[in-house]
């Protein structure tokens, strides 16, 4: 074929495409920056809201902050100084914002300790648990969807299993797992957070129901993708069924599943509270429950802001992942 000739024919469209191509990278970056920007606004709103809630709650602030601790003039003076309660409201707000931004969440008068240190010491076990649960969920969903999509009986069996998992409360699943694997088979420890083995059962009980939900969405997406004309093209190249599913179908199916996962991770955090109790694990769940029961407001506020922070980080990640998965979204300005 006469390449010269074809080049001439295409001169005009190329010029416009070149322009578009170079701008794609910058659009992607600006879109991600936009997402981060809106995340920061959400965080600022969360901090502000916690400040407002402290001030509009009934009763005076000092007794709110003290919680169930005995009120002495010395403690009261310390609180007044720490929160700047004699200053104008706007100044209180700004200094609160400033402190939170520097990771200073104040002092818990119930536990007689610095809130930030307390939360930081407990956040690692919780992150480990939710992270492991997420891995369980994603692995379960991908395996179940890829192995059964489009196959009549396997998909029915997997679908039924997922329905059972979704409708099982995670604490009950946890108790059943404990009974079978810890008490009867003695394969995993009953409680605590000493080693990796101690993480297995909590992660399973927390992650499986999440995986079941994602699996359903992933399977539907995969089946839809395998019906698309491009699937026929890929098969006409001689690709085997697994390649088609993993390399082509899964990415299409991941688009709705990723959105859903972003939403569900929020659930994972609150689910972790219960799972930590069932398995006697340390973590944010335990201190949150204790703080709520002990009316330890500084700790509750810190956990609330931290949850908002984690949520914002994750949803920004999900949005970014979405842009990376689907190049068509990047082109739209």
């Amino acid at each position: 074929m006469d390449v010269e000739n074809v080049t001439a024919l295409h001169q005009a469209p190329i010029a416009s495409l070149q322009g578009r191509f170079s701008s794609i990278r910058t659009t992607l970056l600006s879109q991600i920056l936009g997402r981060i920007g809106s995340g920061i606004i959400v965080l600022w709103a969360a901090i502000t809201l916690s400040f407002i809630s402290l001030h509009v709650a009934p009763g005076d602030i000092v007794s709110l902050l003290i919680g169930e601790q005995i009120r002495t003039p010395a403690i009261e003076a310390a609180i007044r100084a720490e929160w700047g309660l004699d200053e104008p409201l706007i100044k209180q707000y700004l200094s609160y914002l400033w402190r939170v931004l520097h990771g200073d969440f104040g002092r818990s008068y119930v536990l007689q300790t610095d809130v930030a240190t307390l939360v930081l010491s407990q956040i690692w076990p919780t992150l480990k648990l939710t992270g492991a649960a997420l891995v369980v969920a994603v692995v379960f969903a991908v395996v179940s969807a890829v192995a059964t999509a489009g196959l009549r009986w396997p998909r029915r069996i997997a679908g039924g299993m997922e329905l059972v998992l979704v409708s099982t409360p995670s604490f009950w699943l946890g108790i059943v797992l404990l009974f079978v694997f810890s008490f009867t088979l003695k394969l995993f420890p009953v409680a605590g957070d000493r080693n990796f083995a101690a993480l297995v059962l909590p992660a399973l009980s927390l992650g499986l129901s999440l995986g079941a939900v994602i699996g359903q969405v992933l399977r539907e997406g995969l089946e839809r993708a395998l019906e698309e004309p491009f699937a026929l093209t890929v098969r006409s190249w001689g690709a085997n069924a697994l390649t088609l599913r993993l390399r082509h179908g899964l990415r299409h199916a991941a688009l709705p599943a990723v959105t859903l996962t972003g939403w569900l991770i929020g659930n994972l955090l609150s689910g972790a509270v219960i799972t930590e109790q069932v398995f006697g694990r340390p973590g944010l769940g335990k201190i949150t429950v204790d703080a709520v029961l002990g009316k330890d407001l500084p700790v509750v506020l810190a956990v609330a802001i931290l949850s908002a922070f984690i949520y914002v980080v994750l949803s920004t990640l999900v949005d970014t992942l979405y842009l990376l998965l689907d190049p068509r979204l990047r082109a739209r300005t």
Binding site: L232, R235, S236, G238, R251, H252
Partner: peptide, 24 residues
Amino acid sequence: WRQLRGSKIGFVLQDALVSLDPLR
């Protein structure tokens, strides 16, 4: 069949917008 597809017989479908994988 897989060995034959692509190597012995190639297949072109209509409308490459949907007949090529849009995400690759």
